[in-house]
């Protein structure tokens, strides 16, 4: 029983961080049909920027904010210079382009910051007893903070003027354009928001394991699984899928070896593709 409780908390914490990464990814896919293979690397770059700002200022919250802004601006640059000209082309073109961006960003990080692992200190210290473990409050705080970020995004999309523009563009680009919504601007803004969310998740995750130039790789892969399982472009579905996949992996770790537990998410992906290709958390198509 104690292990089930521990793994539930682990799964929720991991799932919430993954949800922040995946929500940016699904937002970008939903509006631009771009499968962004560089998303995990934007997360990594955000973590490096956060670590640098934290090193200078000593303020975690400022680091989180600055990293999000800087990577949002980088997202704007990438969208305008690389992805915008590819809109409407074969999806393979954008996949290759974002894959290329991913390699460039990893190489850049290694060149700029070197091979030494960077540190992001936890803004919340202390632990509480959880059966045989001392569970860190920071992990719980991370889950809550990730929830607040996702909640903020949801409120913005639901009630904000520009959020409504984004939803309208997602539903029908041509009609949105006809109604006077500046679609290219919306595309750029969404890419910036997605990039900022990736950066925020990088800074939040930094204290868990340090900042390295490959820290985004595992998240990219898992975020793609989540986006497919949750329904491509479906924000709510992706969030639920992130928690679902993380919980399943955490519970699987109780009964099988860790190497087998990580396969579980791939099994879920395959089953979803076979039996419910529109995603687990979207209404059944009529």
């Amino acid at each position: 029983m104690d292990q089930i409780v521990i793994q539930t908390i682990n799964g929720l914490v991991n799932g919430m961080v993954l949800a922040v990464v995946a929500s940016g990814l699904t937002l970008i896919f939903g509006i631009m049909d771009i499968v962004n293979f560089a998303h995990g690397d934007l997360m990594m770059l955000g973590a490096f920027v956060g670590a640098t700002v934290l090193g200078i200022t000593g303020n975690f919250w400022l680091a989180l904010f600055v990293a999000a802004i800087v990577i949002a601006m980088l997202g704007v640059l990438l969208q305008v210079t690389t992805l915008r000209p590819l809109i409407g082309r074969d999806p393979l073109t954008t996949i290759l382009a974002t894959f290329g961006i991913s390699l460039v960003l990893q190489k850049y990080a290694l060149w700029q910051w070197g091979p030494t692992v960077r540190k992001i200190s936890e803004p919340v210290s202390g632990q509480f007893a959880l059966f045989h473990l001392q569970y860190p409050w920071y992990r719980v705080a991370t889950a809550i903070l990730a929830g607040l970020i996702i909640g903020g995004l949801w409120l913005f999309l639901k009630y904000g003027k520009y959020g409504i523009w984004i939803r309208a563009t997602t539903q029908d680009r041509v009609m949105a354009q006809a109604m006077g919504i500046p679609v290219p601007l919306v595309h750029t803004a969404v890419f910036a928001i997605g990039s900022a969310m990736a950066a925020a998740s990088g800074v939040l995750f930094g204290p868990f394991a340090g900042v390295t130039q490959t820290m985004g790789s595992d998240f990219t892969l898992r975020a793609f699984i989540v986006v497919v399982v949750g329904g491509m472009g479906n924000l709510g579905g992706s969030i639920l899928a992130a928690i679902f996949v993380s919980l399943i992996e955490a519970y699987a770790a109780l009964v099988v070896s860790p190497a087998q537990a990580v396969i579980v998410s791939f099994v879920v992906l395959v089953l979803t593709m076979l039996f419910r290709p529109t995603g687990l958390f979207v209404p059944t198509p009529k």
Binding site: Q3, I6, Q7, N10, D218
Partner: peptide
């Protein structure tokens, strides 16, 4: 593995 908490727990 990015977050080893589930396995280490």
């Amino acid at each position: 593995t990015a977050d080893m908490a589930s396995f280490v727990s």
